[in-house]
Design a protein around this nucleic acid. Structure first.
Length: 863
DNA sequence: CGGATCGAC
DNA sequence: CTATGTCGATCCG
């Protein structure tokens, strides 16, 4: 890669510049030659963050290549021989299936956006232009290309290559309109044609050809457009069309030096009548495509190139041969196909990009025939899918029919901007993206289960973070609830440094099948219904959300919770002290009691071995005191931080790197009360716990089958009461759980565990404690997210106020979620677990002193 | 499933 | 100053 840092041309040619697509400048009279172009690009590029990242990526590719080469070294002649036989069997099979009976056409508008702009603004016609912005160009006209100005090049570099270039901003509406006009023509030849973006399309004209044979001439006659063009244009079109033997002009729009491509690619129309201002096309595939191109040009004043071949791959490559404004055909014969491929560089093959090209080049493969020759080797070095693809390419095989693209699989939106490094702005942006995305999703009536956040930092490094929910999401609130968490995780994990990003994106995928949609609809209805029953005059759901994300409203909600907690802390028996309004029946209160016992038990000695909740090491002792000592030791390693309050504003994360667990004053007492030496475990409860791990464990394990890190820390479950289960959950580093369900911040690098209560139905269905709907759960994490989302709707607050909510609140701890944090959420910041939910609870870190361990209470909701 | 990468337009 | 936006596929852990 050292060579890349030189401006030396010879060394440039093989590296980054090559990948920028600037190495094959067809030097024109007024253009620049390849070396000058590279030199200018290099100067503009070298030292930039972008460039550094390009180098890094390049290194990664080189490492892949090295790895591949090492693999290659180990291949024996025997293996190769065997592979050869196997591959050749496949070749025979593929040959037998070769289908040359279809006529596929690939239509490709020439320099589409640029051509449209030139058409609409005659002043641009003679100039080098590009369409896009100073940051990025979408395309350039052929004049600009002579200066090395290409699509996917930033405008400011184009300016350096070609100071006189005109950069026209994108105008998609216009291109769409033109594209639609073109499609109207195409659909006549193949109603099932497949558009690929605005400027390309595949057609299968096999049927059209069959019918066309019997068509009378009049049906194949088309007239020159004499209307919607300017006087000058009209003359140009007519004149050049006539001069080209009935064809149509090379577009004066595109080329100042009109190369007489038409003569090469259009046969003379011998024997064809040419009435004035009209032309008749024949019945061959070539004639059909000329007709299509003619009609496109007449209608739009734009030219297209085309390829005709027995399959899409060949048609596409073919359309490239004679562009611009030309066409090419591979006749449906095996030999013609192989001849076409023989010296064709693999890079021309659709699907083979710069990386694959470089990897294959390392193996001495540049052309398609070489790709075929090395088929045995490739089958040993690449994945099945890859080498089979290579083989089909080298045989000239491809899709012979145009399948309608199936249902969309994802929808996303992303934005690039100048550096954003404050959490507040980042969350705002995220919210914005979610809003836009939700809008688009709504248009198509889609709901997806997976939300992915994409970030690109100022060094151009890209990261994606995804999370899959149990129920699908579609509203901006729902999406943001998830995206926000993902973002929070990233912000926290980069602490104490701020995230410095230049791009953010949000994607939703995992759309529901039709069946799932119906099921989902039901649960939505029930959700809406429950909302309606409560009745919120004058309040929209949106208002709920907005309100709820504001500190003030959270306050009112949590004030209640705090009050309840305080009440609770005065007596150690929760079922007696918890406010009546929080419990609807005695049973759940008992359940809570049971839960606490077991939870406490799990933290303490269970039989002869137990697991320390702090360091997660198995301790083999049945002596409670010994265990306590161990825990004390572990806890003593925990660092204690100064008390500190974080802003109630959920967007504000400025207080990092400090721990953002926040203590309300009233909690400090509780915290200090509960010291590690006050382990509540008793022999009595130990006995209950002993026979607790039962057959139900299996069932539950299944439910949470993809809970992260089950290998390292197998879930420990206890059947507490009926269908309630206590699960020992992994806790991220930086936090551990002390006794009595207190969580503690620790410097300990190991992850620890915590205990959480779940309800499962017979067939492994978890019931969302908020919306009360059954969630087919495969992932605990997903279930938690669902709960978070429900909570975010703000419904909890309203419902609890109305005392009408079907869930019971249990003041075990103060997390709004069921279950713990998983490592996937990578938080080094203890506040995050609750903060992310949008309903931040009050937490605190006591003063620097002593065993001040933070207390962490979770409010659990369950049916 | 989640994350990174590739490739196309 | 200033290097896109969207989507599908694939591979790997």
């Amino acid at each position: 890669m050292d060579n890349m840092k030189e401006v030396d041309n010879s060394s440039c040619s093989d590296g980054v510049l090559l990948r920028m697509g600037l190495n094959d400048n067809k030097a024109g009279m007024q253009g620049l030659d390849k070396e000058k172009i590279n030199k200018i690009i290099m100067k503009a590029t070298k030292g930039s963050r972008f460039y550094e990242n390009e180098l890094k990526k390049d290194q990664q590719v080189n490492q892949r290549i090295e790895k591949m080469m090492r693999l290659k070294e180990k291949i024996t002649a025997q293996q190769l021989l065997k592979a050869q036989l196997q591959v050749d069997n496949l070749v025979t099979e593929l040959e037998q299936r070769r289908n040359l009976s279809n006529t596929i056409v690939h239509i490709d508008m020439d320099a589409f956006y640029a051509a449209v702009e030139m058409r609409d603004n005659p002043e641009l016609k003679e100039k080098p232009i590009a369409v896009g912005s100073m940051s990025m160009l979408s395309t350039s006209n052929y004049h600009a290309r002579r200066f090395g100005v290409r699509a996917a090049m930033p405008g400011f570099i184009a300016k350096k290559l070609c100071p006189h270039i005109t950069i026209v901003p994108l105008n998609f509406e216009k291109y769409s309109k033109v594209s639609k006009e073109v499609r109207e023509i195409l659909t006549e030849y193949d109603p099932n044609f497949m558009p690929m973006g605005l400027d390309e399309a595949y057609l299968n004209i096999s049927e059209h050809l069959e019918e066309r044979v019997n068509w009378p001439e009049d049906k194949r006659r088309f007239f020159f457009n004499t209307e919607s063009t300017t006087e000058k244009d009209k003359d140009d079109v007519n004149m050049s069309a006539k001069l080209n033997g009935g064809g149509f002009s090379s577009s004066p729009v595109l080329f100042e030096d009109n190369t007489p491509l038409m003569d090469d690619h259009y046969e003379q129309r011998d024997g064809k009548q040419s009435v004035e201002n009209s032309v008749v096309f024949g019945t061959s595939a070539e004639e059909v495509v000329k007709e299509i191109r003619f009609r496109i040009e007449q209608k739009t004043q734009l030219t297209a190139s085309a390829g005709i071949a027995p399959n899409t791959m060949l048609a596409k490559m073919c359309s490239d041969c004679n562009k611009p404004n030309g066409q090419c055909r591979i006749v449906p014969e095996r030999q013609a196909v192989l001849d076409f491929l023989k010296d064709l560089p693999i890079r021309k093959v659709p699907g083979i990009g710069k990386v694959t090209e470089k990897m294959l080049k390392a193996l001495g493969i540049v052309t398609c025939s070489e790709l075929y020759q090395q088929r045995a080797l490739l089958s040993l070095l690449f994945s099945e899918a890859s080498w089979r693809n290579f083989l089909e390419i080298s045989l000239g095989l491809g899709s012979t029919h145009l399948e309608k693209d199936g249902e969309r699989k994802s929808m996303s939106t992303e934005r690039t901007f100048s550096e954003i490094n404050t959490a507040e702005d980042q969350y705002r942006l995220c919210q914005e993206l979610c809003r836009d995305l939700a809008e688009e999703l709504q248009k198509e009536g889609l709901k997806g289960k997976t939300v992915t956040l994409k970030l690109k930092n100022v060094n151009f490094e890209v990261k994606t973070r995804a999370s899959t929910m149990l129920s699908s999401v579609s509203t901006k609130e729902e999406i943001f609830a998830v995206a926000k968490e993902l973002l929070a995780t990233e912000i926290d994990s980069s602490a104490p440094h701020p995230l410095r990003i230049r791009l953010m994106g949000v994607r939703v995928s995992g759309f529901l099948s039709e069946d799932e949609k119906k099921y989902q609809q039901k649960s939505i209805m029930s959700f809406l219904k429950s909302e309606k029953e409560i009745g919120h005059p004058g309040k929209s759901k949106q208002e709920f959300f907005t309100k709820n994300t504001e500190a003030s409203s959270r306050g009112s909600f949590f004030d209640k919770k705090r009050a309840a907690r305080q009440q609770n802390s005065e007596s150690l028996a929760p079922n007696q002290t918890v406010g009546k309004q929080l419990f609807h029946d005695r049973k759940s209160a008992n359940l809570v009691e049971e839960t606490e016992k077991v939870a406490a038990l799990q933290s303490s000695a269970v039989c002869k071995t137990f697991t320390c909740p702090v360091c997660f090491e198995d301790q083999s002792s049945n002596n409670l005191e010994e265990f306590n000592r161990h825990i004390d030791e572990c806890l003593n390693r925990a660092s204690v931080n100064n008390t500190m309050e974080i802003s109630e504003n959920e967007y504000s994360r400025e207080n990092k790197p400090n721990i953002t667990l926040q203590f309300k004053n009233e909690n400090i007492d509780e915290c200090q009360k509960a010291k590690p030496d006050q382990l509540p475990g008793t022999e009595q409860s130990a006995s209950t716990s002993n026979n607790s791990t039962s057959s139900s464990t299996e069932k539950f394990t299944q439910i949470i089958s993809d809970e992260p890190h089950r290998e390292r820390h197998p879930s420990k479950l206890s059947d507490i009461a009926g269908n309630m289960y206590l699960k020992q959950c992994l806790f991220p580093k930086g936090i551990s759980q002390g006794n009595e369900n207190r969580f503690e911040k620790t410097e300990h690098t190991e992850e620890a565990t915590s205990f959480h209560l779940f309800e499962a139905k017979e067939d492994g269905v978890l019931v969302c404690p908020v919306c009360n709907s059954e969630q087919k759960s495969t992932s605990l994490l997903s279930f938690n997210r669902h709960v978070d989302i429900c909570l975010n709707k703000g419904i909890i607050q309203e419902l609890t106020e109305k005392k009408d909510f079907p869930t019971k609140t249990y003041n075990l701890e103060n997390s709004s979620r069921v279950g713990g944090l998983s490592r996937g959420q990578q938080c080094t910041n203890p506040s995050q677990g609750t903060k992310r939910s949008g309903l931040t609870t009050s937490q605190s870190v006591s003063k620097k002193a002593k065993s001040s361990n933070s207390k962490h209470t979770i409010e659990m909701f369950f049916k």
